[in-house]
């Protein structure tokens, strides 16, 4: 599917610092996200994990007054480099949101096709890619007979898989997921987790979750964020980054241990 070399799918964060106006939201983050693996970001609420995730495809700057310092490399290219437009970044780094958000006025087919339509692909390529993406999102068998129906007719879990299909229809390098299962029941959650393990063969996956078991189940690497207070103001900080099983069995940082064992957060 992807023709890129595996190195081009690596994401490197260098002194990445998101701001809301004058307020710094997170301490500078330095971390390498390994290509074609699942990296989980966990931490208590308010620690800035979603903010960091949204910086990775330049969705952070959509919020009024929000800005970013530092660099994020996709492969060896800085997505915040001069001359790089957010639209170009977002088509290479797909995103799935907390709340399933199929476009309300579009059919299931058009929801998946929308990115391709914008880019002016030919009809036969779109047909092919939509089917491919729906199959990859393990949704094809459930919706193939009602492609013209509204996406809202689907269940929450199906809607979320539809959103995953929409994100991978553009064949991005990286897939970002912002607490994709927080609005879903356990069965749907399980299906999505299975799907993600499947998808990591082709995509670099970064998933924010507040559910530690979920991270333990699917993630190869885990980043732990915590909230610190400097001068009375909360600020997120990356406290530990390691293989998932190490994080959960032998955390190096005492704060991680407290969080994992449920003493904080």
């Amino acid at each position: 599917m992807n023709t890129q070399t595996i190195e081009s799918q690596q994401v490197t964060l260098q002194k990445l610092t998101p701001f809301y106006g004058a307020t710094q939201a997170v301490q500078p983050v330095d971390v390498v996200i390994r290509p074609r693996s699942v990296t989980a970001i966990i931490g208590p609420s308010g620690c800035g994990k979603s903010t960091v995730l949204r910086c990775l495809n330049r969705m952070h700057e959509v919020v009024p007054n929000a800005r970013v310092e530092g660099t994020v490399l996709l492969g060896e290219h800085n997505i915040y480099g001069s001359g790089i437009e957010p639209q170009a970044v977002r088509r290479r780094i797909g995103m799935v949101f907390q709340q399933p958000n199929p476009l309300r006025m579009l059919s299931i087919f058009e929801n998946v096709a929308i990115g391709l339509r914008l880019e002016g692909y030919a009809r036969n390529i779109i047909d092919e890619r939509v089917e491919q993406s729906l199959r990859a999102a393990a949704l094809w068998d459930e919706v193939k007979d009602k492609l013209n129906h509204s996406g809202l007719a689907l269940s929450g879990g199906q809607q979320q898989r539809l959103c995953i299909a929409r994100a991978i229809a553009l064949q991005p390098e990286v897939l970002l997921l912002d607490e994709p299962c927080s609005a879903l029941d356990p069965v749907s959650t399980y299906k999505i987790e299975e799907l993600l393990i499947e998808l990591k063969q082709n995509y670099t996956i970064v998933i924010v979750t507040h559910n530690m078991q979920q991270a333990a189940r699917i993630a190869d690497r885990t980043l732990v964020f915590m909230v610190e207070r400097t001068q009375g103001r909360p600020i997120g900080v990356l406290v530990e980054e390691d293989d998932t099983n190490k994080i959960f069995t032998a955390p190096r940082d005492p704060r991680t241990e407290d969080y994992i064992s449920g003493r904080v957060g």
């Binding site: 290219h77 997505i79 639209q87 170009a88 914008l118 880019e119 002016g120």
Partner: peptide, 13 residues
């Protein structure tokens, strides 16, 4: 590689 869509120039206009 961060490539822009081929029709992006027109869309931007």
């Amino acid at each position: 590689m961060i490539t822009q869509a081929t029709n992006y120039r027109r869309r931007k206009l």
